[in-house]
Amino acid sequence: MHGSAWPPPRLEVPGLLLRRWSQDDAELLQDAVSESHERLREWMPWAREAPSLEKQRAYLQTAVRTWADGVDYGYGMFDPGETAVLGSVAMHARLGPGALEIGYWVHSAHTRRGLASTATALVTDVAFALPGIERTEIHCDPANIASAGVPRVLGYRLDRVQDRDPALFGEPGREMVWVMSRDAYKGSEAWRRAHAHRVR
């Protein structure tokens, strides 16, 4: 969908590495999801069942394939030594042409460190470097104050609150839709944070 342009497989700033998922990451991912499960299950449909190594392997297999297919671009958040998964951030091509949806979660032991906002700023910058992308969106539950704080602080605009898709979430509910347009991006807080430390 993006021609010959692809997101970089690694994004690195002081204290945080974003790296394209590998099937070799299953054990580190299982540790992170297990340790964060109580909190994740409140907001993430995929976390409602107990985590297992087999589920992480299946997820990573899908993540590798969907990146290659240009459908989803999922990054693991790692410490600089790649000894632990700190969370995940992804760009999903499910909004139709010209748009990507960004989603994220952070290990419960590493919240309130700015990891989600830093990672989201970095992938927002990556998204607008791809040809044809004119907007990015972040969808989150209005009750998830921490998650909603990420697009708010990065300069995303709250476009609407709508019914969420039960097919994706398994139950009805509401979601906030935050939008960043290509025109609004340069000079935004997301742009500033992405360029404060040049991505390598």
Results as ranks from 00 to 15, higher is better:
residue 39 R to G: 13
residue 191 W to P: 01
residue 153 V to I: 12
residue 188 S to M: 09
residue 158 L to G: 01
residue 133 I to Y: 05
residue 174 R to L: 13
residue 9 P to A: 14
residue 56 Q to M: 12
residue 84 A to I: 08
residue 188 S to L: 11
residue 20 R to W: 15
residue 106 V to K: 03
residue 181 S to L: 14
residue 105 W to Y: 14
residue 50 A to Q: 12
residue 174 R to H: 09
residue 139 H to G: 03
residue 197 H to D: 13
residue 170 G to P: 10
residue 83 T to C: 00
residue 39 R to V: 14
residue 79 D to Q: 04
residue 137 E to Y: 00
residue 140 C to N: 10
residue 114 G to F: 00
residue 99 A to K: 15
residue 66 T to E: 15
residue 80 P to D: 14
residue 131 P to N: 01
residue 85 V to G: 02
residue 118 T to S: 09
residue 75 Y to R: 02
residue 92 H to I: 10
residue 12 E to A: 11
residue 76 G to F: 00
residue 152 R to V: 05
residue 61 Q to A: 14
residue 33 V to D: 03
residue 66 T to Y: 11
residue 144 N to E: 04
residue 44 M to T: 03
residue 125 D to Q: 11
residue 30 Q to K: 15
residue 92 H to R: 15
residue 102 I to E: 04
residue 156 Y to M: 09
residue 9 P to L: 07
residue 90 A to H: 12
residue 123 V to W: 00
residue 121 A to E: 08
residue 55 K to P: 00
residue 76 G to Q: 02
residue 49 E to L: 11
residue 174 R to G: 08
residue 74 G to L: 09
residue 14 P to E: 07
residue 27 E to Q: 15
residue 90 A to P: 01
residue 111 T to M: 15
residue 53 L to V: 11
residue 36 S to L: 05
residue 127 A to I: 05
residue 78 F to Y: 08
residue 137 E to H: 03
residue 11 L to N: 05
residue 53 L to E: 07
residue 71 V to G: 03
residue 102 I to C: 02
residue 4 S to R: 12
residue 34 S to A: 12
residue 26 A to T: 07
residue 99 A to E: 09
residue 84 A to G: 10
residue 71 V to L: 12
residue 59 Y to C: 05
residue 10 R to F: 02
residue 114 G to V: 14
residue 134 E to T: 07
residue 29 L to W: 01
residue 105 W to G: 00
residue 84 A to K: 07
residue 111 T to N: 06
residue 6 W to Q: 12
residue 76 G to T: 00
residue 24 D to P: 01
residue 137 E to I: 15
residue 52 S to Q: 08
residue 89 V to M: 03
residue 30 Q to G: 06
residue 180 M to E: 03
residue 192 R to P: 00
residue 66 T to H: 13
residue 140 C to H: 10
residue 87 G to Q: 03
residue 91 M to W: 00
residue 180 M to D: 04
residue 163 D to V: 14
residue 62 T to C: 11
residue 74 G to N: 10
residue 169 F to C: 04
residue 120 T to V: 10
